[in-house]
Structures are given as structure tokens and as C-alpha cells.
Amino acid sequence: MALRIAVCVKQVPDPETPASAFKVDEAANRVVPAPGIPPVVNGFDLHAVEAALRIKDGGEAEVTIISAGNNFVMDVMKKPLSMGADALVLAEDPALADIDAFVTVNVLAAIIEKTGPYDLVLAGRQASDWDQAHVPLGLAERLGLPSVTLARNVEPQEGRVRIERALTDGYQVIEAPLPAVVTVSNELGEPRYPTLRGIMAASRKQPERLSLDELGLDGDSLKPALSLRRLFIPEGESQVEIIEGEDEADAGRKLALRLRELNLI
């Protein structure tokens, strides 16, 4: 029987936006979208998609992408489909703009309960907008499932999943019973590029859309646990001393002498 895998994918502002184009509206406590820079699929989520597709490459699996948010850009959100995922399920609503982790968990849990059951739920290790790294852990607790973070390899076996969990100096091998929630890290290796055929297939697929009503979400389940009081760009004044020389090699020499003069090396 095919393994049913859900992959949680978030649309985020492009983290490669140059610092000079990164702006905050302090009155509204919001990041101002950089003009001309479209959003992207959160980087680690593509690693999670890649982990799912490797499982599918090696056996039978059905990969469903799920996401909660607002103002989805379809070209962006279809990227996992063009990489080879089977289906896309979206909860899109103005009420889901800038939701906190607690509301996100409620929405994703409702999507999973409605479209599941899944054997495996994969997610990125962290979203590059709010850098929380806790939605998947919350999802696991909410669904009553075991969770393992920072996978660099995900290998489902009979009723279990074996994970290589990245440490800063190596890795752990961990096993969890299925169903389980696993977050994936970049140590897994580069996500595959969409193929032309994949792009064509994705363009024909329509996302399944679920409204907040259909998901049974209202009142309390949409109340955030934290409130953003202030958002600002920290002041930092450049105090760099640029070392110059007759040429680049001379500058390198002078840099060493300057550091020695200050006893830094």
C-alpha cells in the first residue's frame, strides 16, 4: 500500500532579499514586501519535499503538499508539484495572514484531519520569516504524534521511520513509530529541480481549497497566543577600517601588520 505523506510548505518572503531592500513598516508592525522580489517556498520545506520524493522514488508513496496562509502566488506554491508531488491542499484566507504558530498549528492539524490519515508528516526545520522552528513540534503534540527534528535522511520501514538527525558535529540515528512528524534540514542535500514535464503536469493540476468553515475553524482556534508589540530593524553603524595598499597583495600584508600591531594575532 502506498505510504501517504503530507508535507507542510510555507510561502515566505525571499530570504535572499538584499538587506538594503528589506524594509519594515514600524507603525503597522509588518515587513514591507520588497518590490519586484516575489515570495518563495520556504527553503527547508523544499528539503522536506525532496525527502518525500526520495521515499516515493524508492517505493510507493503519495505526496500531498499542505499550506495555510493568504495571498498565495500560484507559480510559487506549485513548485513542489512540479518537482513531483501529487497534490496541493491550501487553506487561504485573509484571516490567515501573519498568523502565529498556535493558529498555524490549529489550521494545519485541521487540514490533516480532513484530508488524512497520513503515515508521515514532513516539514521544514524552520521558516525563514519568523525563524520559530516550532510549528511542526506543535503539530505533533496537537495530533498526539511522536516528532523528530533536523532529519538529514528519512527512511520509512514497516510501521516505523528511521531518521538520521543532524547534530552540529555528526548525527543521531532515531526511530519513531508511524505516524510521526519529522522536520527536515539542509544536510539532506539539494532539492531536485522541477523538470519540464513536471512543470507541465503541475500547470494542469488545481489545488484543493479548504475554507475555514470546512475546516471547522473559528473563534478560539484563530486566537493567537502571542501578540507582536513592535517590529524594527536594529541600528548598526559601520565602523570598518578598510585597509588599502599599492595592490591587493600589499593590502593583505598591511592587514596582517595591523592585526599584529593591535595584538589580535
Partner: peptide, 28 residues
């Protein structure tokens, strides 16, 4: 962006700057 946080910097090709830097460190 690194120059915003740096205290010292050289603007140049590392392939020219670094060998001279290392040679000087060795001499010192």
C-alpha cells in the same frame, strides 16, 4: 554586508589578498 559588522576589511580578490596575508603572518 559583512563590512557593516567588520572592524577591519580588505576589498579585493581573496586569491591575491590571502596568500600575502598568510606569508606576512608566517614572517611575523
Amino acid at each position: 554586508n559583512i563590512f557593516k559588522a567588520a572592524r577591519f576589511g580588505v576589498v579585493g580578490d581573496w586569491a591575491k589578498v590571502l596568500p600575502a596575508f598568510t606569508a606576512t603572518v608566517r614572517d611575523l
